[in-house]
């Protein structure tokens, strides 16, 4: 996994609630057997509308509405966001599987209260560069929560499978106790 420490950038504001992963990356692009190259298909259908937010904003931070990434478990959604160039997302809440998938690939999903997300949206629209800093856990100056374990995995770009395999003895013990 790619490590994440901090990013400073202009931000793209997508002020919509319940953006589902079918919109983030439509089904016809899930047929690829590779992990890369999904960025050009990000929000494929919505990008056909000239006034769609991503068509006239640039940045490495995406600020979105509540329940971002709900629906399908497709990891292709965070792959597409990351491949497109986003390094962090800020939203009031996320679909559980999307949030988990993002953490696994080094795309930081920052959760902030709605009023603070609103503040960041306003500042981003005014062209301000924002900093999302995982070491001190702040986004645009607002402190956010992320558990220590996920933070450490992201900071170090940890191979979680290798980490779990260190618990081989415990896994084997569980298996023999439940055989």
């Amino acid at each position: 996994m790619k490590a994440f420490r901090s990013v400073t950038s202009t931000a793209v504001v997508l002020d919509r609630a319940d953006v589902d992963t079918d919109q983030i990356i439509p089904k016809q692009f899930l047929k690829r057997i590779e992990r890369s190259g999904f960025g050009e298909f990000l929000f494929f259908d919505w990008r056909k509308a000239p006034d769609f937010e991503l068509n006239h904003q640039r940045g490495k931070i995406l600020i979105a509405g509540r329940n971002f990434g709900c629906g399908s478990s497709r990891e292709h959604a965070p792959w597409a966001l990351e491949d497109y160039g986003f390094e962090a997302i800020v939203a009031p809440s996320y679909g559980d599987i999307f949030r988990q998938n993002s953490l696994k690939i080094g795309l930081l999903p920052v959760e902030l209260p709605p009023e603070q997300v609103r503040d960041l949206m306003d500042r981003a629209r005014a062209g301000e560069e924002l900093t999302v800093d995982l070491e001190v856990r702040t986004a645009g100056g607002h402190p956010f929560e992320l558990d220590d374990f996920s933070r450490k995995c992201l900071l170090e770009g940890m191979d979680e499978i290798a980490l779990t395999l260190r618990d081989e003895a415990a896994i084997a013990a569980y298996e023999s106790a439940h055989a």
């Binding site: 478990s73 696994k104 779990t164 395999l165 298996e175």
Partner: peptide, 18 residues
């Protein structure tokens, strides 16, 4: 419950999930 592809790989390799 549903999981993403990174977690699929984790389960394939370890039969566990954190």
């Amino acid at each position: 419950f549903g999981i993403g592809t990174s977690e699929v790989e984790h389960v394939l390799a370890t039969q566990t999930l954190s």
